[in-house]
Write a protein that binds this DNA or RNA. Structure first.
Lengths: 198, 198
DNA sequence: ATCGTTCCGATGCAGTTGCATCGGAACGAA
DNA sequence: TTCGTTCCGATGCAACTGCATCGGAACGAT
């Protein structure tokens, strides 16, 4: 066996570079040369890891999706939630990428979102991610609605969709500067609060 | 006075071409040559109307924004609303671009949204558009909340923001195929219905 | 008819792009 | 060590990009 290289970790390295570039200049500013430079590998290495540019982008999007999902999960575990309702608040707030330190991630997400409207493979990945998130939210809402006495009559699946769309919209509006992160946070939490009092 | 050309209408013609291309291939697939071909003018003509490509894109975005705003306005006038509440429902549904025939417009909107995260001039235009929409919604909500007896205690400005973000998120999710247009429509209208019963 | 101005379309150009190619370095097996 | 395989980095290349340029067509004033 000749020289062997850890492809998996190199792919991750490249995906990170793609994200940093997408954050700075948008997805159309991502070129193979720049990615290679940013990842501090040669272009040849990039080409060996991914046959085409699109393959690289698809992998990078998958990576971002996992990061977001992981953060939501981590948040749920870290604060084991006095109640499902607060857990839901934490998860939604985490997903909405409202905090400044997630601004880069949010921009990458938006860039991929727009690209997915054109590229079917990207859209497929995003759909999978959204479906998973929707299910998580549905589950939390179901629990939260059943907890109090009397239970709150809600359509969990439906509310999960609402929450997901609202969070996405808020992320976008914060990125544009139409809302500030605290404003968006307020909107999000008021919406959740209204759920339990409706 | 030598040969004169209607610049304004030509700019509109070109903006339309930009939109059709952005719908098909995304904003990064929009090149001066293709725009010229699609608008059935020469590249020279495009260059005379807009000094740079960015200037062209900015104008095109302004055009789209006006179209959307005009549709919302038209909808409000066409059905002079038995109540402010139903008027709001119509306006929001119009803005969310959920119907199939607005799919192209929604894709263009999303493409510009992503670009605006990179380009300050584009972001400026979008912010203006959103601010105007937010004010319209605020006004409608104020009226709707004051109509019944007793009045409904709401923060109109706040609810307008929520509605705007929700509509945007729904548009995105429909474009991705995560939701179908009817599903999104249901989410939107349920949210509105909950407003008046909260 | 002639002129002067405005506009047009074609072409040129330097810079980038994604991808293909290839000689040689790196490394494990013998 | 020697060989065989795998990987690497540089380079090449055709296509495409936005923008500049320019000769001439179109057209109103004279």
């Amino acid at each position: 066996m000749p020289r062997q290289v850890d492809h998996a970790s190199r792919r991750l390295l490249i995906a990170e570079a793609v994200c940093r570039l997408a954050d700075e200049r948008g997805l159309e500013g991502v070129t193979l040369r720049d990615v290679a430079a940013r990842a501090e590998v040669s272009m040849g290495a990039v080409q060996r890891c991914f046959r085409t540019k699109e393959e690289m982008l698809v992998f990078a999007l998958g990576h971002v999706g996992e990061q977001v999902a992981a953060r939501v999960r981590a948040r749920l575990i870290r604060s084991p939630a006095q109640s499902a309702a607060t857990a839901l608040g934490h998860a939604a707030s985490e997903f909405a990428l409202l905090r400044d330190e997630h601004r880069a991630e949010a921009r990458v997400w938006l860039a991929f979102l727009a690209q997915a409207a054109i590229s079917a493979p990207l859209a497929e990945i995003l759909k999978t991610n959204y479906a998973a998130l929707e299910e998580s939210f549905t589950h939390l809402i179901t629990t939260a609605a059943a907890t109090p006495d009397p239970p709150i009559p809600l359509n969990p699946h439906h509310e999960a969709r609402t929450l997901l769309a609202l969070a996405d919209g808020l992320t976008t509006h914060v990125l544009l500067g139409h809302l500030t992160p605290p404003e968006a946070e307020t909107v999000l939490h008021t919406h959740l609060a209204n759920l339990w009092t409706a």
